[in-house]
Simulated scan of single mutants.
Amino acid sequence: MCAKNSFLTSLGVEIYASGHRRWPDEVKARVVADTLQPGATVNAVADHYGVQPNQVSAWRRLAKQGKLVLPAILAEEPVFASLVVCDTPPAVHSYDGRAADEGIRIIIGEVRLELAADTPAVRLAEIVRALGAAPC
């Protein structure tokens, strides 16, 4: 057995006598995840796994459509989400038509938090961290 087949078999790819391969979804997801690494190209990843680049592109489309679940990426350093801070226009009104008090709004999907403008930065960081850790 050649080294490439040995490598693929160790990943769980079934290789038939005809040369046909059956790729488990977990392995497809790993291949797609490898294409998302900084500096990676579809061609280089395809060559590494011994598969045609168009097949890797097809797996990427499946992942984009949510039909192929990619493995979680464990970051070695903290990952930060972007935070946009903007001035509130002066004509903003509350839901009941009164002028809105100045404050801090945190909106994540369906969750909307409104905090006092003098909320300490440490408390804001705790809230944002807790929202990021909350299960969906």
Rank of each mutant, 00 (worst) to 15 (best):
C2R: 14
C2W: 07
C2S: 14
K4V: 08
N5C: 09
S6M: 13
T9E: 11
T9H: 05
T9A: 11
S10I: 07
S10N: 12
L11V: 01
L11A: 01
V13F: 09
V13T: 07
E14V: 06
I15R: 05
Y16S: 01
A17K: 15
A17W: 10
G19I: 00
H20Q: 02
H20W: 13
R21N: 04
R21P: 02
P24C: 11
P24E: 03
P24W: 11
P24V: 10
D25A: 10
D25P: 01
E26V: 12
E26Q: 08
E26S: 14
V27F: 04
V27S: 02
V27T: 03
K28N: 00
K28E: 03
A29K: 05
R30M: 10
V31F: 01
V31P: 03
A33F: 06
A33N: 00
L36Y: 08
Q37S: 14
A40P: 06
T41Q: 07
V42E: 02
V42S: 02
N43L: 04
N43S: 08
A44Q: 11
A44D: 15
A44K: 14
V45H: 01
V45R: 03
A46K: 03
A46T: 00
H48D: 06
Y49G: 02
G50I: 04
G50T: 08
V51L: 06
V51D: 01
P53C: 07
P53M: 10
V56G: 00
S57K: 15
S57R: 15
W59G: 00
R60S: 04
R60F: 12
L62M: 09
L62H: 03
A63E: 06
A63Y: 11
A63F: 10
G66F: 11
K67W: 03
L68I: 01
L70S: 00
L70H: 02
L70A: 05
P71A: 03
A72D: 13
A72W: 04
A72M: 09
I73F: 05
L74D: 04
A75T: 09
A75G: 08
A75Q: 12
E76T: 09
P78V: 12
P78T: 07
V79M: 13
A81D: 15
V85K: 09
V85I: 14
V85T: 09
C86G: 12
D87I: 05
A91D: 13
A91C: 04
H93P: 06
S94Y: 08
D96C: 10
A100P: 01
A100Q: 12
A100I: 05
D101S: 10
D101W: 07
G103T: 13
R105H: 06
I107T: 15
G109A: 12
V111W: 06
V111H: 05
R112A: 05
R112H: 02
L113T: 01
E114G: 05
E114F: 04
L115W: 04
A116F: 03
A116K: 07
A117Y: 00
D118M: 13
D118S: 15
D118R: 05
T119Y: 00
T119V: 15
T119G: 11
P120W: 04
A121V: 10
R123P: 00
R123Y: 00
A125G: 09
A125N: 13
A125I: 14
I127Q: 04
R129Q: 12
A130K: 14
A130C: 10
L131M: 14
A134N: 11
P135N: 08
P135C: 07
C136A: 13
C136F: 00
C136R: 15
